[in-house]
Design a protein around this nucleic acid. Structure first.
Length: 646
RNA sequence: GCCAGUAUAGCUCAGUUGGCCAGAGCAGCUGAUUUGUAAUCAGCUGGUCGGGGGUUCGAAUCCCUCUACUGGCUCCA
């Protein structure tokens, strides 16, 4: 007999070999039907796997992340089985569960597959699911595993097996399909009720560009049809927040084939918004001890040879600009740092001056691969809210703190709540690929980690993700459909100070090497605005929105009064406009609502006589009638409050 | 760059298996209307069907190619 401890700490005694499924059945029949997997002493197991010793057991259902994962992973197998039946000879790569659903990488061989084939595959999956195929786990020797897939002729699985240790290999069999798999899986496919294949894409085998590209099919499944419908509706809704859609609707930015791929054109309203953001950050930075610098958009190719960027990126950049002078070449600047290094080198520096902080909204150009371009989030010409801090190694920690203050202030002001923070450190297994002394790296890495701990940041540490020149901390925010985009970044750099021979004179009257910190709280104006649009669905904070107020005269008779209101609001620095079309008020309100203008001021006879405005907020809230100055105070107080409480 | 898909008016989209001068709604323009909290009415303008090449008596529709866009992969100083 063994003791099973359940999450409520109750202990039950069972025969050795009991399964989570059996335990569930003892609690209730319904639970047994819904149990997808189980956590056994912290590991996720099949609900059907025998438990042979005392264990803590937690039953996992669709309501648990791990339960969903087991279901989706099992769905990947189900899809593979359907594909194998429909397209004999297909070879399989890997098929994991992901955040929303699953995928499987497959090599269809001579079959041509597109999304037009989804219906057929879904149908087959449906059919197989209904037959309630059970997943059976089997431990196999490396030899057996190799024999199986050699016979099957699947070189991908053989490659995976080759990297596994004998004694650790398991197969899962369901219906006609046997896969190399660690598991766990759901008891049977019967719980998979709703199936949707979502997208098809090429994916390099093992993520290696030089290897064969397999066909990746993404899908998602649910235990109820209704949940699938809800999920698809959610996706539809998310698409309405897409910054490319809203950017067009709200006239913020556009692209032109004539100008070029990935080169955004900011329309007046977008430019207005961007300027507000820039002004906001400039003020914050001034308070934080930054100095503005301005540098040109191009630089002599030798500058980038010094920085090392030419050697690393020259080939895949915009081609150099030539001049009438033989052999003279310039590069469009792909980053601002080399220019700022030259500014630092303008004169000798004392340790007493450090840290020096040079800030510039610097526009840079990078020839990104065409397939990488994406709205405003990935472009070829963009403006970084860049700054470079030159400091001593001992100042890294306090400078990091200062930059994080700025980033958090910004994210708060714009109401970004789900910010993922990543700390990228050296790969401990590959210490030679980094520049800079161990001592300095050690100092910087521990400073970053300490800062994160002291501030209680929920930061994820990634080893091996550091740049060759230094560790970094990145701030990421998700877009409407859950893609992560890096916005703020703070990077330590030991490389450029070396290459540009940057020095300062220390208290010992000797030359010392400063450390350089690159940082950009927004990341780039383009990407930040894109994510901001998706985040607020185009309903920008009042202080930021291009048009704050629209004045709606009831009829032409009140046009003059409307203009008077406009000019008074202008004096209060409130951005307003008048809808002077010969339309009914209802129509003007509707259009203003769709333009997402925060305040609508309806003016007619009453208002003109009393020198007031009737205020309607975006969304329909009626503020009532206010004097013009009263309204101006109202709006300015609202702005002040929203920026202060942050 | 790679895989798959898409491209019709400023926007959103129709356009059957190739067949007369390519359609709608919205936007725009003109006129009427003078309007009180989410669409007033009428008329009009607007497209070399992404570019180029081909097949055909005939191409928006089929084929090739280029370009751009979408979803992924890879990349991201």
């Amino acid at each position: 007999m063994i003791n099973i401890t359940l999450p409520d700490n109750s202990v039950k005694s069972y025969e050795s070999g009991v399964t989570a499924l059996k335990i569930a059945a003892d609690i209730s029949e319904g639970l047994a039907r819904n149990v997808l997997a189980a956590k056994v002493n912290g590991d996720i197991w099949d609900a059907t796997r025998p438990i042979n010793q005392d264990a803590k057991v937690q039953l996992l259902t669709w309501n648990d992340e791990e339960g969903k994962a087991a279901m989706w992973h099992s769905s990947a197998h189900l899809m593979a089985e359907a594909i194998e039946l429909l397209y004999p000879g297909t070879k399989f790569g890997i098929g994991p569960d992901i955040e929303n659903g699953f995928y499987y990488d497959v090599d269809f061989g001579s079959h041509d597959i597109s999304d037009k084939d989804f219906g057929k595959i879904e149908q087959k999956m449906q059919e197989l699911a209904r037959s309630k195929q059970e997943f059976s786990r089997k431990e196999v020797s490396k030899q057996e595993a190799e024999t199986y897939f050699t016979n099957k002729g699947d070189e991908y699985k053989l490659e995976l097996i080759n990297e596994l240790e004998d004694g650790q290999i398991t197969f899962y069999e369901s219906g006609y399909f046997t896969d190399l798999c660690r598991g766990p899986h759901i008891p049977n496919t019967g719980v998979i009720k709703a199936i949707k294949l979502l997208k098809i894409a090429g994916a390099y085998w093992r993520g290696d560009e030089k290897r064969k590209q397999l066909t990746r099919i993404y899908g998602i499944t649910f235990p109820k049809k209704k949940e699938l419908d809800e999920y698809l509706l959610l996706l539809e809704e998310a698409k309405k927040r897409d910054h490319r859609v809203l950017g067009k609707e709200l006239e913020l930015f556009t692209f032109s084939q004539n100008v070029g791929q990935g080169l955004p054109l900011w329309l007046p309203k977008g430019a207005q918004l961007r300027e507000k953001l820039e002004q906001y950050l400039k003020r914050v930075q001034k308070d934080a001890g930054y100095e503005s610098v301005i540098t040109p958009h191009i630089g002599n190719v030798n500058l980038y040879k010094t920085s090392g960027h030419f050697q690393k990126y020259g080939e895949e950049s915009f081609r150099p600009i030539t001049t009438p002078v033989e052999g003279e070449e310039f590069f469009l600047k792909p980053m601002n740092c080399p220019h700022h290094c030259e500014i630092f080198n303008f004169k000798p520096h004392s340790y007493k001056e450090l840290p020096i902080r040079y800030a510039e909204f610097g526009t840079v150009y990078r020839y990104e691969q065409s397939g990488e371009l994406h709205g405003l989030t990935r472009v070829r010409g963009f403006t970084q809210d860049d700054a470079h801090i030159f400091c001593t190694p001992d100042q890294i920690k306090s400078e990091f703190n200062g930059v994080i203050d700025i980033i958090q202030q910004i994210f708060k002001a714009l109401d970004f709540k789900d910010v993922l923070i990543q700390i990228s450190l050296r790969d401990p297994n590959n210490p030679t690929k980094y520049i800079g002394s161990d001592e300095n790296w050690e100092k910087a890495e521990s400073a970053i980690i300490e800062v994160a701990e002291e501030r209680g940041l929920n930061a994820k540490i990634e080893y091996g993700e550091a740049a060759f020149y230094g560790p970094k901390m990145d701030f990421m925010v998700k877009d409407a459909i859950g893609r992560k985009w890096q916005l703020g970044t703070i990077q330590v750099d030991y490389n450029l100070p070396e290459r540009f021979d940057l020095t300062y004179i220390g208290a010992d009257n000797e030359k010392h090497r400063p450390v350089m910190i690159h940082r950009a709280p927004f990341g780039s104006m383009e990407r930040f605005v894109a994510v901001l649009i998706e985040h607020c669905a185009g309903n920008f904070p009042l202080w930021l929105t291009p048009d704050q107020v629209i004045i709606l005269p009831i009829s032409e008779k009140y046009q003059e009064y409307a203009e008077k209101v406009l000019s008074l609001l202008k004096k209060h620095e409130i951005r307003s406009l008048i809808d002077d079309r010969s339309e009914k008020t209802g129509r003007k309100i509707r259009d203003a609502e769709m333009k997402k203008i925060p305040f609508m001021l309806i003016v007619g006879e009453k208002e003109e006589n009393d020198l007031t405005v009737s205020v309607r907020k975006h969304g329909g809230e009626d503020i009532g009638t206010l004097s013009i100055d009263g309204f101006a105070d109202h709006i300015n107080n609202e702005i002040k409050a929203s920026l202060q409480e942050k």
